[in-house]
Write a protein that binds this DNA or RNA. Structure first.
Lengths: 241, 241
DNA sequence: CGTTGAATTGAGAGATTTCAATCCATGTGG
DNA sequence: CCACATGGATTGAAATCTCTCAATTCAACG
């Protein structure tokens, strides 16, 4: 096994694609105080006025909407480095809640937009963040619209791997902090189906679990194939043709 | 029946919530030439550099992604007045293709963003457009993640009604320009299931069809109830408590 | 009037859910 | 330190929903 990647241990891969630390958006967030969020505590609520953008410093957030009859749809997860809430003009479209202990920084949208007026780089970074959020939503739609239960569960593990490891090796260790119910509500499945599929993935030796929240993907490529994903997304430098 | 609403006959309701005509974003688009798009012709392709934002002047676009094994996911439809492509930083996340004969105007994103630097109203309108697009994507995720086939089909008809009528009355006439395959690929179902559900809606007297692309929703409220939606979204002025 | 592609309907198969029972990990109190 | 209680996770069996495959109907068009 080549690379250990507990969610909090390394910056998100998607985020690394943007300038980090020295980038103005990150710089802006850096000036704001670190806010610790307990597991289960909300960062913002669906329907509230979307006055702040949030950056996840560590931990994982679940983003969800509740239907009036109580059903819950998890529209996505936010990992370390992810920025959420920039794309909302009026009110938040979902509730953001800490899965584990987490920490975030908040930034006033108005302040951000005003600063963006004078700063080209910042504008680009803001649109980059919006584009990231949009991209994740599209990914979710494709998964729910086209994929089988098995493909969905595999896709979720791969998503976690992409977000929390650099995918340098074909075998990666990932943290799976969310409960089976979280996974089910995100994948449009039931808890039981998620369990059965995970059991199957274990039987097929595609993944194994060391504790409930800690998994090893034995072959990212094989799992991606199983997920019906384009392998290009997961090609590792050493394996890429 | 109170209000006729063929898709091209009146401006989109969502769009009316923003200043129209005199608003700077619309104003910008107005300066651009009208581009006629034949049915089936693409406006932009997934993966192409997202250099332009597009406003639908009339007609309907289907927005879709193709998986590498050929499956198609329609991530949404764009109706008259909708603006798409503002939220993309790098490349387009989906292909946009005319369902019917349509017309659009294009606007350079770079131009738009530069102008936005000096214009507060324009900035707000841009974020409004992004927020609209994001909102539709979230809606889609909730539908695919939580709802049954029957609820999904009903939701689609209601979505069309919301986009193409003012919902002043409980009975509305809507255009359904897309094929059953389009509907199926948007709802994560098969053609046959869509057909059966539509047949059931007809049997229940919730909708009726006058021609293949033309339906009457006999009671928006009843259909919304059937769709598992919050009735508040559809309350008509006369019916609202 | 025949051809074509889309839409519809039926019957059987398959995937996922539901309901129920059991297992496991964790924390708490005695 | 152990027994027990608790909530999440797992597994099984039956029910249900949706899909697949096949046949038929319908509408548009040359």
């Amino acid at each position: 096994m080549a690379y250990l990647a507990w969610p909090d241990a390394c910056p998100s891969v998607t985020y690394l694609k943007q300038p980090r630390g020295n980038g103005t958006l990150s710089g802006f967030f850096q000036t704001k105080p670190l806010e610790n969020i307990h597991a289960g505590q909300a960062v913002f609520w669906e329907g509230d006025e979307a006055s702040n953008a949030v950056q996840v410093v560590h931990g994982v957030l679940r983003l969800y909407r509740i239907l009036h009859d109580g059903r819950r749809a998890i529209v996505g997860f936010a990992f370390q480095g992810d920025v959420r809430g920039v794309a909302f003009h009026g009110s938040y479209l979902y509730t953001a809640e800490a899965v584990t202990e987490a920490a975030v920084r908040r930034l006033s949208c108005r302040h951000l937009h005003n600063s963006a007026a004078e700063d080209l780089i910042l504008r680009q970074e803001i649109f980059g963040a919006i584009s990231n959020e949009m991209s994740q939503a599209q990914e979710q739609i494709v998964m729910l619209g086209c994929k089988s239960a098995e493909e969905r569960v595999a896709s979720l593990f791969l998503m976690i791997a992409r977000k929390t490891t650099n995918l340098l090796a074909d075998t990666v260790e990932i943290g799976v902090p969310m409960t089976r119910l979280d996974m089910a509500d995100c994948l449009g499945l039931t808890i039981e189906t998620v369990c059965r599929v995970v059991a199957k993935l274990k039987r097929m030796n595609l993944v194994s679990f060391t504790g409930r929240n800690h998994a090893i993907i034995h072959s990212v490529r094989a799992l991606a194939h199983f997920a019906g994903d384009d392998l290009g997304l997961y090609a590792t430098p050493s394996l890429a043709s």
